[in-house]
């Protein structure tokens, strides 16, 4: 379910963000091709992508909201709900799994106060999720904190990592 938006909608694509989009549009022969970058811009600005945002993106790129939603829901990195100020993605696929990734997850849940996967901590600061392969298997366990890619995280290193983002 999407969060209810009661306030009047403030468009994302104005000023600098609109300029960014216009530059991106020059890279592709179709407007539709700018959809993924446009969604990244929305998420960058708003932290997640609401149904209303999808309507706006559709208007800007000449796509229906349903089409945009179909694409948003395909790609797991687009947030369809608000997330914590720090969004933590922990790889638990096999190669990291055998190196103790599930213990890293437990440590992160404990130290951030997020308590369970996908839930945001009561202070709104942390959301921790398990993700499939982050593509850094030789550096188990890789953790993506927002846009920071942290290699070789162990349960022991978790407290220090959490402190850094507090």
């Amino acid at each position: 379910m999407s969060a209810v938006e009661t306030q009047e909608y403030a468009p994302v694509f104005t000023g600098k963000t609109l300029e960014r989009l216009q530059e991106i549009l020059t890279r592709y022969p179709t407007k539709q091709a700018a959809l993924l970058p446009a969604l990244w811009l929305v998420q960058g600005e708003r932290g997640w992508i609401s149904d209303r945002n999808m309507v706006e993106v559709g208007e800007v790129l000449g796509l229906t909201p349903a089409y945009v939603k179909g694409v948003v829901t395909f790609y797991t990195m687009y947030h369809q709900h608000p997330v914590g100020a720090n969004f933590v993605q922990v790889c638990t696929t096999s190669p990291c799994n055998i190196c103790g990734a599930e213990d890293v997850v437990k440590a992160l849940l404990a130290h951030t106060g997020a308590k369970e996967l996908g839930a945001t901590s009561p202070d709104g600061q942390w959301t921790v999720i398990e993700v499939e392969c982050l593509g850094a298997c030789g550096f188990a366990t890789p953790v993506l904190v927002n846009d920071d890619f942290v290699e070789s995280v162990t349960p022991e290193r978790v407290p220090e990592l959490v402190r850094k983002y507090k």
Binding site: A33, L36, L39, W40, Y75, M77
Partner: peptide
Amino acid sequence: HRGAGAYICGEETAMMNSIEGKRG
């Protein structure tokens, strides 16, 4: 072109769809 979390986009035709702004 930045992907957004979909292993399958490494398959070449899925990648082309993704570049075109479609589901991968």
